[in-house]
Design a protein around this nucleic acid. Structure first.
Lengths: 347, 347
DNA sequence: GATGATAAAACAAACGTTTGTGCTTTTTAG
DNA sequence: CTAAAAAGCACAAACGTTTGTTTTATCATC
């Protein structure tokens, strides 16, 4: 377990009076290919594992132009949603021998771009990016250069970059259907940052569900333009004034739901008795709220895992680099924040 | 903004028909020291920034034996507590020019040790470690070798390694005092993993507070041996049977509190009317629970920031490497989960 | 017009690998 | 006993930097 002062092939090679070449070949499993004698091989191997030696990855990286390193850029690692993704990214990358260099863009597009460029400069072999912002034009260059880069969650399908995301459309549609099934007709929708792919898809799922039931779409019922708690709070307040007859709120993020809950509490509207609430994205604590929140769960972990797998695939085979988008299924988790109401008019 | 195909000093040097040496010296700001002519300097500098060139950090790392890289080992990045720490670590490291290589030990001591060794092998310049487990003997070697390594949260003061942690003792004492102030005398305590520094310190704060008030310490009132939600649930159940007369529970982690809440709900004990609850560590959602939980907040962000600063200090100056422990103050956040009771016997 | 400063930049080695090729020595075949 | 083949390994270059030392040209000085 003690690590040695033998920290280079040269030192080891001197120990055995062979050349560094030989040691390198033994340690990279090329012994038979280069006809190293079994005795030499065993001696070196034993020594290496006993002294717990591994060839310097920096030198290796220089020579091989591969660093066994993947860059991960996240808007906010303290956000449980991204933390969940990161967790799986780190873990499956590890099982494939890759390490993760983590950058936090602090929800700032400029910092994001900086981070991406820093990571390429640091010679990462590939990159996983959860973008912030509605656009990311600086990425087209990387798409053109066919760099191994996969987008997660905040995707840009037009860029021709591989991506993985939850199936936001279907998730939102399922949630809306659920509300409709429970008799709701005036369903407000708290959207996230306008123009982002997830937000657009979710709103689209919402309107599609409405149309399918012939429920008129009222543009005044969709509010908001950020995924944050503040926005949920504020827009719910406004919504309650602008459309007092709503019976349900579909909050398109976790934090939006938290904000909405706070607003509703202040306004003395009971959930679900006065107003039903459905959130998007599940987090353990949602079950502990009162009432426990019904929500559409995203497969965080799978998203992270899938991103790494996609990336590794593209690293091995740059050919299939374009337009392999993955949409992972969501699932509606039914708790106690939706009330069944009778809606005489549509019975 | 477009990055060039000029990706080596050599290429650039040819462009200007100078030597790589000259380019290197210009780009590292040593122009005047080595008397590079101002024209040459300006030309190269301009070109470099126009083409957005930076010397290859891998080659640099090999030559300089410095990688501008810090390893971060976390038991579970999906846990908001650690995510908060990581967030600041990443950010302040970045402002100092360092990148973070992230490892997740999955609460597994063996994997932790592997990760630590992997990171050293990867030539990180320093490391920040949130250990799991009660011991970490493999670290003594690194302490002896005076490697830049700082411990966070789960610290081992005896190892002689620098560390930063919340002042768990004072935090727990404050929480217990608060319960006592509110008339509680039969206060149960849900501890975390026994033997870990935070858990020991917290329990010690709890007992100290009791003693100071002359409240008898009842060993049966301290239960638990893990920081997880399951443990909180289970041990609360057991506690309610073993000591039905308790009026308050001090849960020494967030998740423990969540588990306790679940158990109390099942047993139809209202919080805070039947039983008061105080948690340890604040997370945004605690305010949204019902009732909003009183808790002792740890300075996550400061902990992460402090860890990096300590580390950088020790990297610059290995001399002051030993025994610089930082205890960051906690703060009691009072919400609505504690009821004031009259306690005639001790009035 | 030699002598020595000084300016401007090049040389070469080193960091620790990997890899194509070349060099001995031993073994095998005929 | 010779020629060819195989075994076992070493050489040297390259990856892209940085840095101590040299080199070359320019200029001023006496």
């Amino acid at each position: 377990m003690k690590s040695s002062s033998y920290n280079s092939l040269k030192l080891i090679s001197e120990k055995f009076s062979v050349s560094p070449t030989t040691v390198s070949r033994v340690l990279s499993g090329q012994a038979k290919k280069y006809r190293i004698s079994p005795e030499t091989e065993k001696a070196i191997k034993d020594f290496a594992i006993r002294e717990n030696f591994t060839p310097n990855p920096i030198a290796k990286g220089l020579r091989l132009k591969k660093t066994l390193t993947i860059g991960l850029v996240i808007p906010d690692i303290a956000n449980p949603f991204f933390a969940g993704i990161a967790s799986q990214v780190v873990n499956v990358a590890r099982t494939h021998g890759y390490s993760i260099v983590l950058c936090d863009s602090e929800e700032n597009p400029a910092l994001e771009q900086q981070s991406v460029e820093l990571l390429w400069a640091r010679q990462v072999d590939g990159m996983i990016l959860c973008a912030v912002g509605q656009t990311a034009d600086y990425l087209v260059r990387y798409a053109r250069e066919k760099r191994p880069l996969v987008l997660v969650d905040r995707v840009f399908p037009d860029l021709g970059l591989p991506y993985v995301s939850a199936d936001n459309f279907s998730g939102a549609k399922a949630a809306t259907d659920y509300l409709l099934d429970n008799g709701h007709r005036r369903i407000a929708c708290l959207q996230g940052m306008c123009g982002t792919a997830p937000s657009k898809a979710r709103v689209s799922g919402y309107t599609t569900a409405l149309h399918a039931r012939g429920v008129p779409f009222d543009p005044r019922l969709v509010a908001g333009d950020s995924f944050g708690e503040q926005s949920g709070y504020l827009d719910t307040k406004l919504l309650l004034r602008a459309a007092p007859d709503i019976t349900a709120i579909f909050a398109m993020s976790n934090l939006l739901a938290l904000g909405a809950l706070r607003a509703l509490r202040e306004e003395n509207r009971a959930v679900p008795d006065d107003i039903s609430v459905v959130a998007f994205d599940d987090q353990p604590y949602l079950a502990h709220l009162s009432p426990p929140l019904t929500t559409v769960a995203q497969p965080h972990l799978e998203m992270g895992a899938a991103a790494v797998k996609l990336l590794l695939d593209h690293m091995r085979n740059p050919a299939n680099a374009m337009s392999s988008g993955l949409l992972l299924p969501t699932s509606l988790i039914i708790r106690k924040s939706v009330r069944k109401i009778s809606q005489p008019t549509t019975q």
